[in-house]
Amino acid sequence: MDAGPFVVDGIRTQKLHPWPVRIMHWINAAAIIVMIGSGLGIYNDSVIIQGLHFPEYLVLGSWMAKNLQWHLAAMWVFMLNGLAYLIYGIATGRFRNKLFPITAGEIWETIRETMRLKLSHEDVTMYNAVQKTLYIVVIVAAVAQVVSGFAIWKPMQLSWLTDALGGFQIARIIHLTGMAIIAGFLLVHVALALLVPRTLWAMLSGGPKITTRTVEAAR
C-alpha cells in the first residue's frame, strides 16, 4: 500500500471514551437503575429467599402492575443498548485493547496493592487486572440477565431455554443472582468513580486523547 509520508497507518488517536461509549454508558446506567428498582418490586410479590423483602424506598413503581410496566419497558432499552455496546466493543477492538490480556499474577499483584490502599489511578487510560476482571464479569452478568429474563418472560414459547437453565424457578434464581452481581459491581464502580473523580469526568467529557494501534497495524 502506498501510504503518504504523513499518514500513519494503523495508529488512531482518539479520546479515552469516544462519544458512542459515553452515550451508551449513561443510557445503560439509567436502564440498569430502572431494571433493578422495578425488579425488586416484582421480587417482593413472590419472594425467593424466605424473609428477604426489599425495602419500599428501593422499589420503582407503587405496586406490581407498575413494577412490571417499568421492567418490561426498560428491558428493551437495556437489551438494545447492550447489544449495540457489544457490537461496538468487538468491532472497534475496544474490548481487546481495554480488557485483555489478564494474567493471574497481574490480578494477585493488583489485589495486594489495593489491600495496602495503593489505588494507582495515575493513569486512567489503563485498567488494572482487577478492573478488567470486574468489567468482564459484569458484561457476562448482563448477558446472563437478558438470557434468564427471556426464560422467565417466555417459559413456554422458549421452553428449550427455560429447560436449559434448569426450569422456571431456577431461571428466577439465576436472574436474582445476576442482579446481585450487577448491583454489587454498581456499588464498587460508583464508589471508586467518586474516589477518583477524574474517571467520572472522563466518562462525561471523553477524557484524555490516547493513541491506539488498530487492527490494521498487525498486518
Binding site: 428498582g37 424506598y57 420503582l60 413503581g61 410496566q69 417499568w70 418490561l72
Partner: peptide, 18 residues
C-alpha cells in the same frame, strides 16, 4: 419518589410500551 401518576407523560409512555 418512585411513583408517577398514570396521567403523566411517563405513565403514558409506559402504557404505550405495554
Amino acid at each position: 419518589g418512585c411513583d408517577v401518576s398514570d396521567s403523566s407523560s411517563i405513565g403514558q409512555a409506559l402504557k404505550a410500551v405495554n
